[in-house]
Amino acid sequence: MQKFRNIWAFFQSTLPVNLAISTGAGVLGGLGSFAMSFLAFGFVLAIVIKEANAKPEYIFYRNNGLSRTQLWIFSYVLNDATFLVLTAIFIGCRRMS
């Protein structure tokens, strides 16, 4: 459970950058662009920015039993799950309106 909480904390730290980039992509190119960005480019860029600006943070997670690769893989899974939830909410809202 503690490992999951660490993965969740790492994933949360990637979310603002991913959402900002993907929202920008969505404004320019529509929903398809938002989806593409959120699932690929936005997430990767959030990781790249972390790699450049906050590399020592990986030591915090490593001390708690998680390697960099594990963090990336599990965060990507959570990223996909978040996208599915966002999609479900969007479809639900459209049906209701």
């Binding site: 909480r5 904390a9 730290s13 020592p56 943070e57 030591i59 915090f60």
Partner: peptide, 23 residues
């Protein structure tokens, strides 16, 4: 193994309590 880096390593967006509970 727990390792203290020369640079600060606890994510600065965390609260002290959150970092403690995660570790």
């Amino acid at each position: 193994i727990a390792y203290l880096n020369q640079d600060n390593f606890v994510p600065k967006q965390f609260s002290v309590k959150k970092a403690m509970l995660l570790s």
